[in-house]
Amino acid sequence: MTNAIEIENLRIDLPRSGFRKRVPVINDLNLCIEEGEAVGLVGESGSGKSMTTRAIMHLLPDGAQRSGSVRYRGQEIADFDRRTLALYRSRDLGVIFQDPRAHINPLWTIGDFLVEAVVANRQMLRAEATDRAIALLAQVGISNGSQRIQQYPHQLSGGLLQRVMIVSALMPSPAFILADEISTALDVTVQSEVMAILSELRQSNRLGMLFITHDLDLAAAVTDRLAIMYAGSIVEVGPSHEISTAPKHPYTAALMASRPSLTEVRRLQTVPGRPISAFEAGNGCVFASRCSFAAARCSVERPLARQEKDRSVACHFAADLAPAISVAASQ
């Protein structure tokens, strides 16, 4: 298989009030996604997940400084000229944003929102695009599409709008979907329906996907591989079912232990300490300050990701800790 997206040694520094220099929010991030593969990027808020999606779109905030590389099908996206970048964003990527209410312009109709990108980029004529939009709306379970496209966003519920967002991402037949916390704004029943629709569409269209979430279980259910992110770097990568059953990094284990259980009523176990940002991590392991297994070495030396078959873990003691961690995670 070939890689659709390769992120190598990515580092992003942003200006931050109260600091004279820019501070890193993503530090030494490495991640590959194969064609047609679904990868879940899991982490707490502030870990740099959304910044990663913005790096893939090459749409960083004002004043951001980027080093390292992000390649799409082998080509560095920072080298794209304006036209290529526009085509890359519009045809190759489909982006589904977290909050459809905020991410869809309230002043234009649903139909206008759906067709504008493919029409503006001369991919389709307006009539053609409208037909496709109605067909796709039907696929996501909105049968009265021809009426819906005449409505304004405020006339639709959050769940319907999220489906509209999914359709908008699929309109140009992209090769790759970026889904940024798409379920957070929805209530649980709508959430599972939207997820089912997305998985189905992804499989029938053989789409690659980067699925960003803080919900490890949800990510494990809809993706092939998981990447666990903490303080701007990825601490563990591996097949979804393996990570969600046998984590190797202490942070992954702590995340799993802090999930609310659906079957038993107990006090939530939380990861001790507060999540830090990339710029707060010193030279050592990013998780050292909160890790219950941390040793002296952890706070002075940044662990490199160690590849072991199809899993990779950035922990000095991954091998030694495996038994202890699986106990911690299953608690």
């Binding site: 779109m57 749409l59 526009a86 990527l93 991410h103």
Partner: peptide, 19 residues
């Protein structure tokens, strides 16, 4: 946010500004 959506969809800057 919806302006970011428009940028992420590769719309021409002039169109984004106007519309």
């Amino acid at each position: 946010e919806h302006v970011m959506t428009a940028r992420a969809r590769g719309l021409p800057p002039a169109l984004i500004f106007r519309k």
